[in-house]
Amino acid sequence: MTHVRPMRIDERDAVRSLLTDAYRPYANDLTPAMHEYYLAGVLDLDDGGDAIVAMAGDKVVGTARLFPPDRAPVPLPAGWAWVRAVAVHPSAQGTGAGRALMAYCATRTTGALALHTMDFMPSAVRLYERLGYERVPEWDIQVGMESGFPAEEQFLAIAYALVR
């Protein structure tokens, strides 16, 4: 059974390793420079989000970062919370860890909960849609534009929200 809770400081290395393993398959979907840039953001555990972990026994099998309303570093409507860097270790995918992480995040906010994903992450898109998240394309983000990446290296982070 998966248990979700705030990350402890001594779990930072395990979380960073898990994120690296979970996002490695997407390296082929981006240029090497863009993948390095994107992964650096995913691995930044000091970005203002509250890191959470999904545990199977004493092992970290999943993670996410929850930004309370109005603390998201991306443009969103006032009062919306945001979750990013949702990841489940490849060996634990299909166990309900992702669903448990998202349920935990949803219970920590009373308003809308937004996230961004990519079309090259179809299993993530399916999970979010099954959980009731809906596309909100007006909040999509062109990743890389803010850092001056050439247009051909940028990609679209597609926005979803659970609006209650």
Score class of each variant (00 low, 15 high):
Ala87Leu: 06
Phe120Tyr: 12
Ala81Ser: 14
Val125Cys: 15
Val136Leu: 13
Glu134Tyr: 00
Lys59Asn: 08
Thr20Arg: 13
Val163Asp: 13
Tyr23Trp: 13
Cys105Pro: 07
Val74Gly: 02
Met7Lys: 01
Asp58Arg: 12
Ala85Ser: 15
Gly41Tyr: 00
Tyr23Thr: 05
Asp47Ser: 13
Arg164Met: 01
Asp21Ile: 00
Arg8Asp: 10
Ala85Met: 06
Ala114Leu: 06
Ala64Glu: 09
Arg99Thr: 14
Leu127Arg: 05
Tyr104Lys: 09
Gly57Arg: 05
Thr109Val: 15
Ser91Arg: 10
Ala157Ile: 03
Gly132Tyr: 11
Val163Ser: 15
Ala87His: 06
Arg135Glu: 06
Thr109Gln: 11
Pro68Gln: 13
Leu115Thr: 14
Val125His: 03
Pro32Ala: 12
Pro68Met: 08
Thr2Lys: 04
Leu162Gly: 02
Thr95Arg: 03
Ala81Met: 04
Leu127Gly: 03
Gly98Tyr: 04
Ala27His: 10
Ala87Thr: 06
Asp46Phe: 00
Phe155Trp: 14
Thr107Asp: 14
Trp139Pro: 01
Asp119Met: 07
Arg108Cys: 14
Ala151Asp: 13
Phe120Ser: 05
Ile52Lys: 02
Asp47Glu: 08
Val4Cys: 14
Met34Pro: 07
Gln93Tyr: 05
Gly94Phe: 04
Gly96Trp: 07
Gly132His: 09
Tyr104Thr: 11
Thr110Gly: 14
Thr109Ala: 05
Phe67Ile: 07
Leu113Ser: 03
Glu11Thr: 03
Tyr38His: 06
Ala51Pro: 15
Arg12Pro: 00
Arg130His: 14
Asp140Asn: 15
Thr109Trp: 03
Met1Asp: 08
Pro25Val: 04
Cys105Trp: 11
Gly94Leu: 04
Arg12Thr: 12
Gly79Cys: 11
Asp29Val: 00
Pro69Gln: 08
Phe149Glu: 11
Val15Thr: 09
Phe67Leu: 02
Val61Met: 07
Leu30Gly: 05
Glu134Met: 12
Arg164Phe: 03
Leu39His: 05
Ala14Pro: 01
Tyr133Ile: 01
Trp80Asp: 11
Leu45Ser: 01
Pro90Val: 10
Asp47Gln: 01
Ala100Leu: 05
Gln154Asp: 03
Pro150Phe: 08
Arg65Phe: 01
Leu45Lys: 02
Arg99Gln: 13
Pro75Arg: 09
His35Arg: 04
Asp13Ser: 10
Ile141Tyr: 08
Met55Thr: 06
His35Lys: 02
Pro75Cys: 08
Ile141Lys: 08
Ala92Met: 12
Phe120Arg: 10
Ala51Phe: 00
Leu101Gly: 09
Val4Ile: 12
Gly111Met: 06
Gly79Val: 12
Glu146Leu: 13
Tyr104Leu: 05
Val163Asn: 11
Val42Ser: 02
Trp80Tyr: 12
Gln154Asn: 14
Ile141Asn: 03
Tyr37Gln: 12
Ala92Glu: 10
Ile9Gly: 07
Trp139Lys: 07
Phe155Gly: 08
Leu162His: 10
Thr63Asn: 09
Thr20Phe: 01
Asp13Cys: 00
Ala103Phe: 01
Pro75Trp: 08
